[in-house]
Simulated assay, not measured.
Amino acid sequence: MIRHVVLFRFKPGIDWNDPRAVEAEQSTAKVGSEVPGLHTWRCGRNVSTRAVAYDFYAEGVLDDIPAVDRYLTHPFHQRSAELWREIADWVVVDVEA
């Protein structure tokens, strides 16, 4: 099993008052039901005010690296990623669960 974790940080001038941020959040919340192969899917806004904190988190568990690759290329995932690309940068880690 692979745990796929993504942390998003808004680009300067973007916050949760921006409708694009809300749209990206809502799309990401649907990834778990729209993209096959995910055993679990979690996401949410950060509640920490620390300077090192990111703004949003998404995490999914998949069978293996080929399943991660299928997830990454799924059209719904691609659309969600495109929404984030406009407003945020992110980091990713894939670890054996």
Rank of each mutant, 00 (worst) to 15 (best):
A88N: 03
R70L: 11
L72Y: 05
E96T: 10
G60S: 12
A97W: 08
I14N: 11
P19H: 06
E23P: 01
V6Y: 07
P19T: 06
I87R: 04
V35T: 04
R9L: 04
G60E: 13
E23I: 01
G13F: 08
F76G: 05
Y54K: 09
A24H: 06
Y57G: 15
I87M: 03
S33G: 14
F8R: 04
E82D: 15
F10E: 10
Q26Y: 00
W16R: 13
D55T: 01
V35G: 06
L7K: 02
D64Q: 01
G60N: 13
K11I: 05
G60V: 13
E25N: 05
T40N: 08
V93H: 03
E25H: 10
Q78R: 15
L72K: 15
F56L: 03
T28L: 10
R79D: 14
E34R: 15
R50T: 04
L7N: 04
M1E: 12
S80P: 02
H74M: 10
E23F: 01
V92Q: 10
D64H: 07
I14S: 12
H77V: 12
H74G: 10
I87H: 03
V68I: 12
D89V: 12
V22W: 01
A24M: 07
L72V: 11
A97C: 11
P12H: 03
